[in-house]
Amino acid sequence: MKKINICQVVGNDAKKSKGRLGANKYLILRRLSQLGILFLFLLGPWFDVWIVKGNLTSSLTLDTLPLSDPFVLLQSFFAGHSLATDALIGALIVLIFYLIVGGRVFCSWVCPMNIVTDAANYFRCKLGIKATSGGVSNKTRYWILAVSMLGAWLTGSIAWELVNPVSILHRGIIFGMSFGWGLIVLIFLFDLFVVKNGWCSRLCPMGAFYSLLGRVSLLKVNAKERDKCTDCLECYAVCPESQVINPALKGNNSSVIFDKNCTNCGRCVDICEPKVFSYSSRFKKN
C-alpha cells in the first residue's frame, strides 16, 4: 500500500461539501489581506498614490492615522530612547486592534513572511518531506524575544531589526533591498527542508511578542461543534501551531481555543468537513 502524507489529502472532503471556494475561504481572505496591505504600501512609491506612507514598523494612513509596531518600539525603549508621543499613539492603536482580533492575527493576516513560510510548507507537502521539529522547541521564540530586548539594551540600538526578516522583507519590497533577499530565501529553505514551521512557530520573536496579546485577546477560534468531530486529524495537519487544538477539541472544558499561539488563521475552519470550528468571542460558553 502506498503511504500517503496527510497534508496531501487535507481538505478533500471539505471541498466536496463546501466547494473549492468554501474550503479555502479564510485562506483566500488571508492572502487578500496580506497582499492588499502590501499593495496599499506600494501604491505610493509605484503609482504616486499616497494612501499609506511608511512601512509596518510605523506608518501614516491618509495623513491622519498613525500606526506603529509595539515590538519595535519596545526595542527602542530598551535601547534607551524615550518614546515620542506620535509613535506611542500609533502603537496603542495597534495594541488595541490586536487585543480585539487576536494577537497573532498579525502573523497570519498581515505579516509578509507568512506567505514565504506558507509557500515552504506547500512545497514541503508536495515534495513529501517528513515534518520534523529538528529539535527546535517552540519555546525558543520566547528566548529570542528576550534576546532581542537584551540585545537592544546591550548595544543601545534596535539590534534585532538588523536581522529581523519581517521588517527586512516588508521594508525591502517598499524601499528596496539588496542581499536581504538571501535571508528570506534562507528562511524559506530552513522551513522547507529543516524544520516544519521553523520560523513562524518556533523562532520568530515578533510572533512571540504578539502571542502575549493572544492571552487576553477577544476573538478566538471555537471548536463549538466538537461532538461532530470525525477524528480525521486534518486540522492538526494544517494548523501551524497544532498544539493549540487539542485542549479545545478533545478537552472537557471550554471548546474555545485559548492558547495564545493560535494565529486565528482560520485554516481549520476551512478544511473541517463537519464544520466543527468557527470564530467566536473568548467569553462564549461551550
Partner: peptide, 10 residues
C-alpha cells in the same frame, strides 16, 4: 539616532 530610528521610512 540608532536607538530612536525605527526604520519606517516616513
Amino acid at each position: 539616532f540608532i536607538s530612536a530610528c525605527i526604520r519606517c521610512g516616513l
